[in-house]
Design a protein around this nucleic acid. Structure first.
Lengths: 345, 345
DNA sequence: TTGTAGGCGTTATCAC
DNA sequence: GTGATAACGCCTACAA
């Protein structure tokens, strides 16, 4: 194999008997600006093409202090919700000629912290982070360095950090209301990480719906410590032990709902005949589940796209997005996992 | 906000009244090697920590001509199979102190080509690519530059490019044999991109099983042009129109199987009562589908991990992996989507 | 044990 | 129109 080194501006300059500056200017599209003669421009382009030149972004970035790269931190890329976000981030970024360094933080705050630090050293121009948890110190530290950073999904209300997320309150409210409208009065709530903002909002939405139907909130009907499938399973098992058994479950995540389905199946409970279920997030396969799952759909593509545009706009215009955040509506997708019952009092 | 610039070696050197070299040596763990006094070492570390120093990887990479970065090209990150691979690549890479630049090629060869070129300019140390399709010129060009590159999933037999993939022949063979053993003689085959190596192997496996059961292969039972869900749906509809209708379907991808399920549901065909189905890939939710889907599981985690280790070993030792490739066994996961029937002759 | 100087490939600035 | 030079931050051969 011909292990030719990468061609540099200097190589081209020597071959063409020109200065590096001219070559640089032509190849970075500034021929006009510097009124370079058509002949030289053509010659340069031809030689560059012939030798297969491509700029060394490292050197350019070092010089420009811009890398055209954003860091994307995600708790679990194999989770469909996050991979959908990653996909739209990546495609939005590429359209604007940026690239994405992906870090899967594995739901681990330590990894999140070190990844953040690492990416700083790589001088990414901006950050998109779906934070693992509750602690925001290390994330705020980035903002302190005045590197644009936008939060995804989970966020930190008091920090002023911009974010893009779903209207988790509304989503949970509608999900719970739907169950209530179908006569359910004892609804188990399978939550994610209790301290994180999305969970808090979802729990509030659930409570609000209960209130509107004059159903007292019972802490014992809330179960769960994180978003894993196994947790959904465990929590469901715990809730099913309750007497009387809840007539419905509301899983505040997609994988949680899968765990719940698995637990119900193993407990020989048929959905929706014996127990009803609503899950968060929507998936291509949700309609094909047994039974087709009623879910609260999030606009994951939009979350990624908007967040990405936000950071890129920010770092290009230097204009920080307005306070607050972008909150996207969710939508209830009714399918067959909820049964109408006569409410007991 | 205090928008303090990133601290450099020089800053530390000045503050400590030392030379940059000393600081550099301490901070890159070469204090021993250069017999730097304990006092200076401590002082340097302390100051570095105090000022929150972190190396500028750009500069280091430019100097070293090594970025500790691999480029990962994937046709569709929102596809569970690929996101599982991405996850294990990322985690393997991080363990070895590498990071990953993710490019979703959207199944588009043009994007693949330009991403490759782009990443070359970013001087990634190695490539991991799950190629979109058939054409391998642009990929071979990379190898020509002597940048380590390992293929994932799909590969190019005649090019000598190392790869890691599943034993698609065996997988398809077992899937088809399972259907045959259950009495099916008319089995529709929903394939992916016909020209790509994985599809070719899978089709061969299917044919081999037919042969063993003395069932003649019929081209008209093969349908499909790519791996998308919609294609699985379309192909299934086409196959269902056949008279007599096939008694079973074998979908050579996971999303293809979902499409097939959707098509069957819309055609009012119950699986497995009216028609049996086997899919490729296994998923957490496969067991919860209606009906629980019999699948051919791939070791996606292992594929990503092994491939990543291969490139990293290669680029660190300079030793190209042996010819051929790594081929991982698949396994049949029998569930409830196949019904035993009495074979008609 | 520490310092000096050159260079990695690019671009901005100033000169001709 | 084009060229020389310095600088981005880091590493390393060579001195001291």
């Amino acid at each position: 194999m011909n292990s030719k080194k990468n061609v540099t501006l200097k190589d081209l300059a020597i071959a063409l008997d020109l200065s590096v500056s001219v070559v640089s200017r032509v190849l970075s599209g500034k021929a006009r600006e510097y009124r370079i003669s058509e002949d030289t421009e053509k010659a340069v382009r031809a030689e560059a093409k012939r030798r297969g030149f491509s700029v060394n972004h490292l050197a350019r970035s070092l010089r420009l202090k811009k890398t055209r790269t954003v860091g994307l931190l995600i708790p679990d890329i194999s989770n469909g919700f996050f991979s959908a976000i990653a996909q739209s981030v990546e495609s939005t970024a590429r359209k604007r000629d940026y690239s994405v360094i992906l870090c899967d933080t594995e739901g681990n705050e330590e990894i999140e912290r070190s990844s953040l630090e690492y990416l700083c050293g790589r001088t990414v121009d901006g950050f998109l982070v779906a934070p693992v948890g509750l602690n925001s110190d290390h994330i705020i530290a980035i903002a302190g360095k005045s590197i644009p950073l936008v939060l995804l999904d989970r966020f930190f209300p008091d920090t002023g950090l911009p974010y893009v997320t779903s209207d988790n309150f509304q989503g949970a409210y509608e999900g719970a209301r739907y169950l209530l409208e179908n006569g359910h009065r004892s609804i188990g709530f399978i939550q994610g990480i209790p301290e994180c903002q999305t969970s808090i909002e979802r729990l509030k939405g659930y409570q609000m719906a209960l209130m509107q139907f004059d159903v007292p909130f019972k802490q014992s009907l809330v179960s769960g410590v994180d978003f894993a499938e196994q947790r959904g399973y465990d929590s469901t098992l715990a809730l099913l032990k309750r007497k009387p058994r809840p007539t419905a479950l509301f899983a505040s995540s997609a994988v949680g709902a899968l765990g719940a389905m698995r637990a119900c199946a193993e407990s020989k409970l048929r959905i929706p005949h014996d127990i009803s279920l609503v899950g968060f997030d929507d998936y291509p396969y949700a309609a094909l589940l047994s039974p087709p799952l009623t879910t609260i759909a999030q606009k994951s593509e939009a979350i990624g796209r908007i967040a990405c545009d936000l950071v890129l706009d920010w770092l290009e215009n230097g204009k920080r997005p307005e306070e607050g955040g972008v909150v996207l509506k969710t939508s209830l997708v009714p399918r067959a996992s909820v049964r109408e019952i006569t409410p007991e009092t």
